[in-house]
């Protein structure tokens, strides 16, 4: 793994949280730099070669969102925001300030590590995917190869059944469109649906468990409650 060469800056005013994140990430092979407020973070960003930042919102001296805005003035590197606020509006604010991902406290460090990995992959490997000239659909950290009929998440192939692959292809070709379960059924199985919604629903749940970092809070394959399913555009 080339994680050794990746420098990750972790910023939080709670030293124990910084240490826990650092331990988790170091066990994955990353090099971790620590800062305990926004100003320290800015200093480190200016002097060190950093590949990714994990930053808390509420901090003394300079808060996380202001720090992100200052960092964004000069650098384009992935930033993951940590916050105790779980409101949608807080998330939107964080993302509009220039953050790439938003993780609410309390979080599982393993999930954070997965997100770090995903962000780094996208950040470093986006260039070569385009140069390959393959027939692909790219959506965030997901890449569907239309020739091979294989879905990649963070450049790793996902094991999907034939039906699941068909569903993913259908949905990924129409990002943002809401598909009722019967429509998916009739398009995949080429039969009209008679209370077979459950089949589709179960398939979709399984796909979600394979492709989402946190299946209980899906980012890509979303349920539109009472209507159907859709593939979110990223």
């Amino acid at each position: 793994m080339d994680n050794e060469s990746k420098n990750i800056l972790v910023v939080d005013d709670d030293r124990e949280i910084v240490r826990a994140i650092a331990l988790t990430l170091e066990s994955e092979g990353y090099t971790v730099l620590k800062a305990y407020d926004g100003m320290e973070a800015l200093d480190l960003v200016a002097t060190k070669n950093i590949h990714l930042i994990i930053i808390d919102v509420m901090m003394p001296r300079l808060d996380g969102l202001s720090a992100i805005m200052r960092i964004r003035e000069g650098k384009n590197l992935p930033i993951i925001v940590l916050s105790a606020k779980s409101e949608n509006s807080d998330k939107i604010l964080g993302l509009s300030m220039g953050a790439d991902d938003y993780v609410t406290k309390p979080f599982n460090p393993m999930e954070l590590a997965a997100r770090v990995k995903s962000q780094l992959r996208r950040y470093t490997s986006l260039g070569d995917i385009n140069s390959q000239g393959e027939n692909v659909i790219i959506n965030g950290r997901l890449r569907f190869n239309l020739d091979e009929h294989v879905l990649y998440a963070d450049d790793e192939p996902i094991k999907l059944t034939a039906t699941e692959t068909k569903i993913v292809e259908l949905l990924m070709r129409n990002p943002g469109r809401i598909f009722p379960a019967e429509e998916i059924y009739s398009k995949i199985w080429n039969e009209s649906a008679y209370s077979t919604e459950n089949t589709v629903m179960v398939h979709i749940r399984r796909i979600r468990e394979k492709i989402e970092i946190n299946p209980s809070e899906p980012e890509y394959l979303k349920v539109v409650w009472g209507i159907g399913y859709k593939f979110e555009k990223h």
């Binding site: 709670d14 124990e16 949280i17 826990a20 994140i21 331990l23 988790t24 406290k105 309390p106 979080f107 599982n108 460090p109 393993m110």
Partner: peptide, 9 residues
């Protein structure tokens, strides 16, 4: 958050 992180560790 700390508790969950250290339990994981």
């Amino acid at each position: 958050t700390s508790v969950i992180s250290y339990v994981e560790l």
